[in-house]
Structures are given as C-alpha cells and as structure tokens.
C-alpha cells in the first residue's frame, strides 16, 4: 500500500507539472503576441531582445495613426452589438414558441435551422456579392449586421430553446391565467426567469460575431470593414512592422479572449448543439 501511495504522490506532482506545461504551451503564442506588442519594430526582430528589452507603449499609442484602429474597432463593436441584439429579438420569441407551445413540426424546424449553419459560406459567395451590390448594400453596416445575425440565429435559437425548456411550464401558464398577453409573458415572466441563459447566449453570439472572418472580409471594403478585415489586410509585414502589428492584433483579440473566459460552459452547449452534456 505504501508503494502505491508514494507512486500516486509522485504521479500527482508529475501530472501537475505536465498539466501546467501544456497550459503554458498553449497560451504561449498569445503571450508572445502581447510581449512583441511592447517592443519597437526594430527590437521585435532582434534575437538579443527576445525576452529582455525596454518596453514601450509607442505601438499602442500610434494605433490610430498606423492602422486607423479605432475606426475598424468601432465598426466591429457596432456590427457585433446590433447583430447580437437583433438575433436575440428574433430568437427569443422563436425559442419561446418552440419551448412552450411545441407542435409536431418543432423538432424538424430546429433541425432544419441547424442545417443552414452547415452550408459552406463560400458556395454562395458570388450570389451574395451580386445581390448586395445590386441592392446597394455592399460594404454597409446594415448588411454586416444582417449577415452576422443570420449566421448566428440557429445557434442562438438552439441555446435559448435548451434554457427555456428547463423552465417549468406551470409558471408560464400561471401568467396566462392572470390574463397577461403573450408579449407580456415574454417580457415579464420569461426574460427575468431565463436572464442568466439569455445573457450567456448573447455573450457567445457577440464573440462569434466579433471573430467572423468570411463575410466581413468578402462583403466589405472600407465603410463597414471590421477588425478581421483590418488584420487580414496587413497579413505580410515582412518583419518590418512586427511590433505595431502585434499591438493592433492584441488590441483586436484581447477583450474577446477575456470575455471568452467567462463563457466556457456555454461554449460547449452552443457549439455542440447540446449533444454533449
């Protein structure tokens, strides 16, 4: 028994070290990005300044000058916030109907919604370009908001549906007895009850909008271009601008990575459509 105990003691220490090693290894590229962002462009490519250098804030202070960062960031915020709000506005009533008044077709509608998520975006690249250009919507905030909403709507409906299903039907029905109408029911009973679920759904939807990199790149040029487009446009600095490019990249992903830490659990649900519990 003693041997076993000792073994597991060493085993535990070894496992702890290994686990920390893996965690740090995976985090290293992000750490490296942030570290490089505090180096001058010249220092960033010199081997003698790999880890020890004189940190500078210059790259962050010149983000506007170098990349017009705030314009792209504003576009990202506007499109992601409004897309999230619009998705919720359409998704909450839909999920409510599915959870509390299901019909025989509900399951099929849900499955069909998910299937739209699985179509490859590239397949409709030209029609989308053609339609948006001929309607004068190309490179507008409205278009980006609509596209981001539609690609996230299936996931949002799905997540909300799974949250709403947990709410006892009797509570909603009690509201009906009291003569509250349907919209009042949603506003006064459902939303307060499912607040946590709605908030985390919104958070995840916001993250997906922020990181979207196909339509935001292909359907914008300057007016509504988001941070994805900005970074994609500066893809190959040939070593000249590693410092400033790192700063703008770190500024683009920093807030989202931190937000992401708070919704790990919802991520599993949102991305597996509840198939893993």
């Amino acid at each position: 028994m003693a041997i076993v105990a000792q073994n597991s003691k060493y085993g535990k220490a070894g496992r702890t070290i290994l686990a920390w090693g893996v965690g740090l290894l995976f985090f290293f590229p992000i750490f490296w990005l942030v570290l490089t962002s505090f180096k001058t462009d010249a220092d960033a490519v010199k081997p003698e300044f790999l880890f020890f250098f004189t940190p500078t804030l210059e790259n962050y202070l010149n983000m506007t000058e170098n990349y017009d960062y705030w314009r792209f960031a504003t576009n990202s915020v506007i499109t992601s916030v409004f897309a999230t709000l619009f998705t919720l506005a359409v998704g909450i009533p839909c999920a409510y109907a599915m959870a509390f008044n299901p019909s025989r077709g509900t399951k099929d509608i849900l499955m069909w919604m998910l299937s739209t998520k699985m179509l490859p975006a590239a397949a409709v690249l030209y029609p989308m370009t053609f339609l948006t250009k001929s309607m004068g919507l190309f490179d507008t905030h409205f278009l980006v908001i609509m596209v981001l909403s539609l690609i996230n709507l299936p996931i949002v409906v799905w997540m909300l549906f799974t949250y709403f299903k947990e709410i006892p039907k009797e509570i909603i029905e009690a509201g009906q007895m009291d003569g509250v109408n349907t919209l009042g029911e949603i506003r006064e009973i459902l939303i307060p009850l499912a607040w946590g679920g709605i908030a985390s759904t919104a958070l995840l939807c916001f993250i997906f909008c922020w990181n979207e990199a196909y339509w935001t790149v292909r359907l914008t040029t300057t007016e509504a271009a988001t941070l994805s487009k900005l970074i994609e446009g500066n893809r190959a600095p040939e070593g000249l601008f590693f410092g400033r490019l790192s700063a703008v990249s770190a500024a683009a992903v920093g807030p989202i990575v931190v937000l992401g830490w708070f919704c790990q659990k919802q991520l599993v649900q949102g991305l597996t459509f509840g198939a893993v519990k």
Binding site: P29, A213, K229, F242, A252, W261
Partner: peptide, 18 residues
C-alpha cells in the same frame, strides 16, 4: 481555452509572421 477565442485573422498573422 484562450486560443479558441482568438480571431482567425489574428491567429494566422501571428503564427505565419511572429
């Protein structure tokens, strides 16, 4: 979990350059 929230464009720029 952090790498998962990095936007794809930054992921690619970071790896291929830095």
């Amino acid at each position: 979990i952090s790498p998962f929230f990095v936007m794809p464009a930054v992921n690619a720029v970071l790896w291929i350059n830095m």
